[in-house]
Design a protein around this nucleic acid. Structure first.
Length: 569
RNA sequence: CGGGGCGUGGCGCAGCCUGGUAGCGCACCUGCUUUGGGAGCAGGGAGUCGGAGGUUCAAAUCCUCUCGCCCCGACCA
């Protein structure tokens, strides 16, 4: 491709709307352009990268035994009513009506459509297993679309669905998909972790999220430094503390703590470690007010609590409610003598004794408080956020916490949709059986964005070779010079003939401008061809990632490029 | 949804408070000079100031409504 003919325009400045590096760089390098919030056009360079990722996905999915299909974007409401999701999916479902006022939606995911297809086609166990996938645009009316391709309302997704006879079958398929996913992200040149997304479900580890590690990630990943333990922070566990509560409870006392509302303030004032302070939270769980207790240095993980309570929403009670139930301003709440009946404490609280907590009186705390003696606790539950101070629940080693971008998710669906939509087959004995499903997604645009988050420098993108829009950039510095021009054209022809994707920057720009654009675009290999060097029979190859430079005679350039392409990642 | 902020040539912004009919940088076009890390000079094209309504002799500027866009939304315990 000749740059002069490429539909591209690069920007010197960051777009105002972009926050993330990947978003800024994708806009600046002319890969994407916004049409509306969370809705982007893919320009040629951007689309090229998208296609690269898609093809890697295709190859690995096919290798893993899946077959590609293409399902409609538009789907009739009936199907969604049948599965119950027309009512359940909520505002995120993009709904519309046709001219006859019939209800439709734009597919946010395709369980219904694929299950409908399979239930019509599959009659016998002989036809199973089936594993189908598609790469297609999805629509989700997100509450808060942001970060460019990272969280859009319209986005390209690979979604796959498997259909097996039974649990054993789906386990095999699941493992194949796990392997396929690992290879896909490896080939894309990403540093990632496959983390358990749902521990403790029937049958073991049957949901994994593939997380690309990046500080900008929206998810939190907890993993062990030693063993294979890796989970989403939502589900992270840790070893319960080994310490025992003190043998001798002291007599409870009151302490005057004027204006001290936070745990650290109280700890400093009373000259005690934060670990002997009890954190008392008044929580609104749907319509119920409950009391939640944590050690002073620990934080509540709302999602864990929400799951435990099996309710919809968890929030800190508002100030008014706190005043009403504690009869004190925010900051002095206490489980001692409070009129709340449901009291849940984190596991760690079990090991605490002679601790400090609020007094339900403004400017007062209580010291040497002990649970059991001074107040009642209903349940001890793991509800706190795991920290790097904690240890691995499996092996006891140290834990690390990283931020991650969820680029893929695989899970065993079971019979949820096949039951609802009546997708069955006849087994050997002529018995009707429900098909067991699995479901496998990859955010294609998000994977591209994640790749940039992991591969860039101050000057721009540094593409992993496998997903780079071009492998080689030919950069003639003097497009007027006959010798330069001849050499560059010959190289261009040769490389193309050798199957190398090459971009020739034939613009009559000054070298500086071309260099800047080259770095921004992030093509792995660049060939600088200038009249000055050429007079000395010399040409320069520069590696984008390392900055390494090779000076060679023109005749060696092609071979050196081919050699380098074989070694790059 | 709640809170905050912003809409002015393709992009980034100033002008608004204190009304007088629009400006800067980048990009773009022409010419000359320049040419190894975003060149210089000269000339030029391009904006219903998001939209609607109102106040006024006069509105980018003041008022009302509306649409769009961006950011934040447990950490007080």
């Amino acid at each position: 491709m000749r740059y002069s003919e490429l539909f591209i325009s690069t920007l010197k400045e960051d777009p105002a709307e972009a926050e993330l590096i990947s978003h800024k760089l994708m806009v600046r390098s002319g890969m994407i352009r916004k049409l509306a919030t969370g809705i982007y056009s893919y320009l040629p360079v951007g689309l090229k990268v998208i296609k690269k990722v898609e093809n890697i996905i295709r190859e690995e999915m096919n290798a893993g035994g899946a077959q590609e299909v293409l399902l409609p974007v538009l789907s009739p409401a009936q199907l969604w009513q049948e599965s119950g999701r027309w009512a359940l999916y909520g505002e995120e479902l993009m709904r519309l009506k046709d001219r006859h006022q019939r209800d439709f939606c734009l597919g946010p995911t395709h369980e219904e459509v694929i299950t409908d297809l399979v239930r019509q086609q599959v009659r016998s166990y002989r036809q199973l297993p089936v594993n189908l996938y598609q790469i297609q645009t999805k629509f989700r009316d997100e509450i808060r679309p942001r970060f460019g391709l990272m969280r859009g309302r319209e986005f390209i997704m690979k979604d796959g669905y498997s259909f097996d006879r039974d649990e054993k079958g789906v386990e095999v398929t699941y493992q194949k998909m796990y392997q396929a996913y690992s290879r896909i992200f490896q080939r894309c040149g990403l540093r990632f972790k496959a983390v358990e997304a749902d521990t403790g479900t029937i049958g073991g580890n049957f949901s994994h999220e593939f997380m690309v590690l990046a500080s900008s990630g929206e998810e939190e990943v907890v993993s062990c430094r030693q063993c294979s333990y890796a989970v989403n922070a939502d589900k992270a566990e840790c070893r319960p503390p080994q310490t025992e509560p003190p043998a001798f409870p002291y007599a409870r006392e009151e302490a005057h703590t004027p204006g001290l509302k936070s745990v650290p303030d109280v700890a400093v004032f009373l000259n005690k470690p934060v670990t002997v302070i009890l954190k008392t939270l008044i929580i609104q769980a749907d319509n119920e007010i409950i009391l939640v207790l944590l050690r002073g240095d620990h934080e509540l993980h709302p999602e864990k609590l929400r799951k435990h309570l099996n309710c919809h929403e968890i929030a800190l009670a508002d100030e008014e409610t706190v005043r009403r139930v504690t009869k004190a301003p925010v900051g002095f709440a206490s489980p001692v003598g409070i009129d709340i009946h449901k009291v849940i404490a984190d596991l760690t609280v079990e090991t605490m004794g002679n601790f400090v907590c609020g007094a339900n009186v403004e400017d007062y705390h209580l010291t040497d408080v002990n649970w059991g003696r001074d107040f009642h606790i209903d349940q001890f539950v793991d509800i706190r956020r795991v920290s790097t101070q904690d240890t691995c629940p499996l092996c006891g080693s140290g834990l690390e916490i990283n931020r991650g971008i969820e680029v893929g998710h695989i899970f065993k669906l079971g019979t949820k949709y096949s039951k609802m939509l009546n997708a069955t087959y006849l087994d050997e004995s002529g018995q009707s059986q429900i098909i067991v499903m699995g479901c496998y997604g990859i955010g294609v645009g998000r994977t591209v964005a994640a790749a940039i988050e992991q591969n860039h420098d101050q000057n721009g993108i540094i593409w992993p070779q496998a997903i780079a829009p071009y492998q080689v950039l030919l950069l003639p510095l003097d497009v007027q010079d006959k010798n330069v021009l001849t050499l560059v054209e010959n190289l261009y022809t040769d490389l193309k003939a050798a199957g190398v994707e090459v971009l020739l920057d034939d613009r009559e720009e000054r070298p500086g401008a071309k260099f800047k654009d080259a770095d921004l675009l992030g093509i792995p290999l660049r060939v600088n061809i200038g009249a000055r060097d050429l007079a000395k029979n010399q040409v320069e190859i520069k590696i984008r990632r390392s900055g390494e430079i090779f000076k060679l005679v023109p005749d060696d350039v092609k071979n050196k490029l081919m050699e380098l392409l074989g070694n790059l990642s």
